[in-house]
Amino acid sequence: MTDLTVADPATALASRRHINSDLRAQRVRSAWVFLAPTLLVLALVAGWPLVRTIYFSLTNASLTNLAGAEFIGFDNYLTWITLKSGRTIYRGLLADPAWWNAVWNTLKFTLISVSVETVLGLVVALVLNAHFPGRGLVRAAILIPWAIPTIVSAKMWAWMLNDQFGILNDILLGLGLIGQKVAWTANPDTAMVAVLIVDVWKTTPFMALLILAGLQMVPGDIYEAAKIDGIHPVKVFWRLTLPLIRPALMVAVIFRMLDALRIFDLIYVLTPNNAQTKTMSVLARENLFDFDKFAYGAAASTMLFLIIAGITVLYMWFGRVNFEGER
């Protein structure tokens, strides 16, 4: 009887461990149960189209004959034939100057627009974070460009930038800054600038609001401590504010970057068929639907996906972003 009450430490420990692992297994199980609907929806709306796109990029499918597509390996990406003369001719997406032009345009657009929007957004956020009368109203008002659908704002800007009737030319002519009317969206020299201006106008508010949310997380008392420490406001910005909003800033930048890398609607409306502004998405759509090179367009889409994924991974790696807001 007595030895029943004295628990053997080894068995006690083992049984506790058993209970622990049971508990953990049960938790893991319920986690999967809770995640299942999300995973299912994601698989349906994101996974399946992605798999289909990758599949089509490895076939010779055309828009009119999707069912009869035949597998042709990586020929859409890169293939070559060697002529009798000994010259090798490369073909496929990776050998297509139009594709690389689109890649370059996209990267240029992304880099410039995201940089400008980040800096402007930061400035706007800092202003909106200061105390002044009517702040709430200004905060709401600044969101308007972001709230307008892109198609609408692109059309609106297309009219303002119009070479014959646009208000911009009118103003600049009136001020004597330009000698003759400029075809902003058609001119190869200004097309990208026009796109950038509209995108910055539209997206800076979004950036500003994300950064403002970060600014509001910074405890106010450290600014008083800095005042007592006698730290110059510029130093306060660089040494206190910026490091403390860095997590929010990184998240805002990544959102914007993903958006910018797959920009389509603005360019499609504002500067259609302009080689200077053709981005990866525009090129992919063109091949998929306009040129009846469905498989080729699928290959472009797949590459676009890979490039975005690659850049995102690199960014998160180097930026050491984690979404808990800590380094």
Binding site: D221, I222, E224, A225, K227, I228, D229, P243
Partner: peptide, 29 residues
């Protein structure tokens, strides 16, 4: 301005710089 008054202040909420180590917090100013 506060920094010219020769004062130091300890706040109820501590008001430490959250991203700096203890050493940096004390040495920053």
């Amino acid at each position: 301005v506060p920094s010219k008054r020769g004062i130091a202040m300890v706040f109820q909420s501590y008001a430490l710089y959250p991203h700096m180590t203890v050493f940096e917090n004390m040495a920053f100013g």
